[in-house]
Design a protein around this nucleic acid. Structure first.
Lengths: 225, 225
DNA sequence: CGGGCCGTTGACTCTTGTCAATCGCGGTGG
DNA sequence: CCACCGCGATTGACAAGAGTCAACGGCCCG
């Protein structure tokens, strides 16, 4: 099972990272995880690619998204350090993945899912757990997209980021367009919502507009509904 | 492991169905699946209930949904015959389930998930597969909620129903309010979209307004984007 | 120093939501 | 069997939230 070779084939334009992997070098069988380094906005896999691998973010940030034929985009999720993405049930990817900022990802052969080798059992379990977490997030996001107003969405987004990045001082790695496509809004509406929150004193934005300080997390939570 | 007893405890107000179960009576261990009969709009489990069981629809239709504190509701999915619902990663339900119309559901003890007994291995695999399908649907739905217009959503809904119920003559089991809360719209907008589609000759509605004939599936698909 | 990208802001449009009235099917009870 | 009643669905008028289009500003990078 040439997992490394086939992964390289799937990403001819990408270079393999060497020593950055967190997986011990002596780990046996398919659990050996080579790493992949991807530059900002570079594609990790595309919609309809064969889903031969599963990925974990070692550093940087990745987005997974789906495109409609006319260019509309839905970003399903942003993936931060330690998070798994690229899991599929069928044999092809239903969403694409790109790096939001330069990222290093571990690449696992998809076969570990079947749990053929006992050495892979633990990894397989981890993947089921990751599947569960992904589903949980997706459900939460459906509520956001189906029920909430623009301001509520942005508030929820900021709270989520704060919880995941830790702390009330954030440096958002993604553009307003990414945020908009994640929240089902336009960049203008996202921008206006930030401005509203700032004017209300709930947040404070740095001059670069990517650094955000949450001044009143409680109020944001109340807004989130 | 008193799966039957504990399930009964969880649903004190509900009667157990007797012979309707599809699970062979001689099946061993936790794979024994008692059945539960629930009347229209009756609760199967609520948000925040302990997730002790997993369910499969034997007949009828079930909806799973989440509520916001102010009453806004997002229906995550409708579940038809053969479909699994109530799967959770954590130990409590993150969404509630009610019967859309009188339904009979098989109740599985959640323990089969851990795959402790080899007799449960097959069932456990089925559940992972169900988890995958649920995730896949959720992702598709996120695209609908995040990107599509009202008309596109309704068209997508009708096509989906047609594919799941089989055929172009549908009898929708749910109200306009259910459809609206599933599609992130209001009943009025759903109603207007139906009217538009009917005036355009793409669908035809029976006098009861629940029976729908898809006159032009191709056009509906094109609308869906 | 210049250019392009990202973000913000303003003016306006338009889709969808809100509120309210009416319709009509289907079930119930006489 | 028929009349009534109630709920779900439809329709209309209007309001409002979000989208669109366009211009501008500032930062970063070449």
């Amino acid at each position: 099972m040439p997992s490394l070779a086939s992964a390289a084939r799937a990403h001819p334009s990408l270079a393999w990272g060497g020593g950055a992997s967190r997986t011990p070098r002596h780990a046996p069988s398919a659990a050996v995880a080579p790493t992949l380094r991807v530059g900002k906005d570079k594609v990790i896999f595309s919609e309809a690619d064969r889903a031969t691998h599963v990925y974990r973010v070692l550093s940087g940030v990745v987005r997974t998204s789906r495109l409609l034929s006319d260019g509309r985009r839905q970003i399903e999720a942003f993936h931060f350090e330690g998070e798994v993405f690229g899991l599929e049930v069928g044999d092809e990817h239903r969403s694409g993945a790109e790096a939001v900022q330069e990222a290093v990802v571990a690449v696992y052969h998809r076969g570990v899912f079947e749990g053929a080798s006992p050495a892979d059992a633990a990894l397989s379990g981890q993947l089921v757990a990751a599947l569960g977490r992904t589903l949980s997030r997706a459900r939460e996001h459906m509520v956001l997209l189906g029920c909430k107003s623009a301001l509520e969405r942005v508030a929820a987004f900021l709270i989520g980021m704060s919880e995941r990045l830790g702390g009330e001082v954030l440096r958002l790695p993604m553009t307003r367009a990414d945020i908009a496509d994640h929240l089902g809004l336009t960049t203008e509406t996202v921008s206006r919502s930030f401005t509203l929150l700032e004017r209300a004193g709930l947040i404070e934005a740095g001059p670069d507009r990517r650094s955000i300080v949450l001044r009143d997390v409680e109020a944001l939570r109340r807004l989130d509904a």
